[in-house]
Amino acid sequence: MSTLLNIGRRVGRHLLASLPALFGVVLFTFLLMRVLPGDPAAFFASGPNAGQAEMAQIRETMGLDRPIPEQFLRYVGDLARGNLGQSMTTGQPVMADLAERMPASLELTLFALVLALALALPLGIVAALRPNSLIDHGVRFLCTLGVCVPTFVTGLLLIYVFYYLLGLAPDPTGRIDIFAAPPPGITGFLLVDFLLVGDLAGWKAAFGQLILPACTMALFVLAPLARMTRASLLAVLGSDFIRTARSVGMSDWRVVVVYALRNALLPVLTIIGIVFSTMLGANVLVEKVFSWPGIGSYALDALLASDYAPVQGFVLLIAVIFVMVNLTIDVLYGIVDPRISLK
C-alpha cells in the first residue's frame, strides 16, 4: 500500500516538475517559427498576383499583424482552452488533424518497438553470455550496420527487395490498400480494429503494409537496445549475487533469467523510453518513404508551408508524449526496483 502511495507521490512530483519544461517548449517553438524565414501570408495568398490588400487581410485573420508578445499570449490562451489553432494547409483544426494521424504513427512506432525489442533483447543476451565470440561479433556488426545506414536507404532497400524483386510485400503506400475498406475506427489501430471486427483478410493486408516500415525503424534502433542489453547483462553477470545464485546450485536458466536478466533490464528500460520518444518524433523519413499518413509527415509538410499552428502543435504533442513516456518508465522502475521506492 505504501508503495502505491509512494508511486503516486512520485508521479505528482514528476508532473509538476515537467510543467516548466513544457512551457519552455511552447515558448521556444513559438519563437522559432517566428524567426524562420518565410511568410505564411505569401504562401497562402491566392496566387503570385495577390495584392498587398489580400496579404494584409490574411495576416489579420492569422493575427500576424499584432506584436509578438500579444500573439504569444493569445496562443497560450488558446492552448489553455485546448485549442491548438487552425491548419492553413488542411483547413482543419490542428487538434483534429493530429488526432486523426496520431494512431497511424503510434501503431507504426509501437509495432516497430516491439519488433526491435524482440530482436535486440535475445541478440544482446546471447552476445553477453558469449562475450567476444563469433556471435558477439556478428551482433556488433548487425548493430553497426543498423545505425550507420540511414532509414530512407533501409526503407528503399526493403521496398526494392521485398516489393520489386520478390513481390512479397504489397504496394508500399499508406496503411491500407486503396481499394480495401477500412475497419470502423474503434481504437484507430488498424491491426486491433480488424481483429475486433473479425476481418482476418483485412488484418493480413494491414499487417503487410505495416511490416516493411516497421522493420526499417526497428533496424535503426536495434543498436542502442542490443548494445545496452549486452553491456548491462555483462555487468550484472559479474556481480556478487550471481555468484551466490550459482553457489547454491541454481540452474543456469534461473540464474540468467530470474537473477541476471531482471536486474540487467533496469537500465534497458530507461533506454526504451528514450528510443520510443525518438522514434515517434524522428520517423518523418520512414513515413515519407512509405507514404504513411502519420504526424511526422504532417508536421514536415506544415513546416515547409510555414504553417505555424501544426508545427507548434506537433512539437507540443511530442513533448507531452516524452513526459508521459518518462513518467511511465519511472513508475515501472519504481515497481521493478524496490530500492527506488525505499528512498
Binding site: F241, T244, L266, P338
Partner: peptide
C-alpha cells in the same frame, strides 16, 4: 550444480551485494 548447495555451500564477504537487490 548438483553438489553446490546440496553438498558444498558458501557464505561470502559483503553480504549486502551477495543478495539479489530486487528479489
Amino acid at each position: 550444480k548438483a553438489l553446490r548447495g546440496a553438498a558444498i555451500s558458501m557464505v561470502f564477504q559483503s553480504p549486502r551485494t551477495a543478495l539479489n537487490p530486487i528479489r
